[in-house]
C-alpha cells in the first residue's frame, strides 16, 4: 500500500511540474483530482469539526445552560440554503448581512489598534538620541514613514514639496518591495530543492 502511495505521489509531483513546460493531459488529471479531493477533504473536515463538534456535541453539553443559543447559528445557516429556491432566495441575505456586519465591526477595531494606534506609538520616538549614525538612522526611519504616508494621500495633488515627499515615499516603498523580493527568492529556492530530494531520494533512491 505504501508503494502505491509513493508512486501516486511521484506521478502527481511530475504531473504538476510538467505544467512548467505547458498545459498537458497529466497536469489536467492531477489538477482535477486535486480539486475534487481537496474540496471533499475540507467539506468532510469542516463537517466533523464545525457542525458535529461545535454544534451537535455543543448542543448536548448539559453543563452549558446557554447552549441553545447555538441554534441561532443553525437558523442563519439554513436561511443561507434558501438560495437554492429562487422565490425565497432573498432570505439568504440575512446570514450574509450578519457575516459581513459582524466581520466589519470586529476587524475595524482590531486593525485600528494594530495598524493605526500601535504603529503611531512605535513611530513616536526620540530621534535625537545616541551618536550621529543612530540619529541619521532614526531620521531615515521617521522621514521614511512621513514620505510613505504622503504617498498615500488621495485627495491632494502630488505637486511641489508635497509631490517630492510623495516621490521619496514611492522610492522607499520600492526599496522595501525589492528587499522583500530578494529575501523570498533565497528562501523559495530551498523549497524546490526539497521536492527534488523527494523525487530522487525517496522515490527513485538515487540520492544517498
Amino acid at each position: 500500500m505504501e508503494a502505491i502511495g509513493v508512486w501516486t505521489a511521484a506521478l502527481a509531483t511530475i504531473g504538476i511540474v510538467s505544467f512548467l513546460y505547458k498545459d498537458n493531459v497529466l497536469y489536467r488529471i492531477c489538477e482535477s483530482v486535486f480539486i475534487g479531493t481537496s474540496a471533499g477533504y475540507w467539506f468532510v473536515t469542516y463537517f466533523w469539526d464545525n457542525l458535529y463538534r461545535k454544534f451537535y456535541l455543543g448542543i448536548q453539553d448539559a453543563t452549558d445552560p446557554n447552549r441553545f443559543f447555538l441554534w441561532f447559528g443553525v437558523v442563519l445557516g439554513v436561511l443561507m440554503l434558501t438560495r437554492l429556491w429562487g422565490k425565497i432566495g432573498w432570505l439568504s441575505r440575512w446570514p450574509l448581512a450578519f457575516v459581513v456586519g459582524a466581520t466589519a465591526g470586529l476587524y475595524m477595531m482590531t486593525f485600528f489598534v494594530s495598524n493605526a494606534m500601535r504603529q503611531v506609538g512605535a513611530t513616536i520616538m526620540p530621534i535625537f538620541r545616541g551618536n550621529l549614525p543612530a540619529i541619521i538612522d532614526n531620521t531615515v526611519l521617521a522621514v521614511g514613514v512621513f514620505c510613505g504616508l504622503v504617498y498615500f494621500f488621495f485627495s491632494k495633488e502630488h505637486r511641489g514639496l508635497f509631490g517630492r515627499a510623495s516621490r521619496v515615499g514611492i522610492w522607499i516603498l520600492m526599496i522595501t518591495f525589492g528587499a522583500s523580493f530578494g529575501y523570498t527568492v533565497m528562501s523559495r529556492m530551498s523549497l524546490m530543492l526539497g521536492r527534488f530530494d523527494f523525487l530522487f531520494g525517496t522515490w527513485l533512491g538515487i540520492l544517498p
Partner: peptide, 9 residues
Amino acid sequence: TQSQFAYVA
C-alpha cells in the same frame, strides 16, 4: 475548493 494550492492549480 478551499485548498490553497488546488485553487491555484
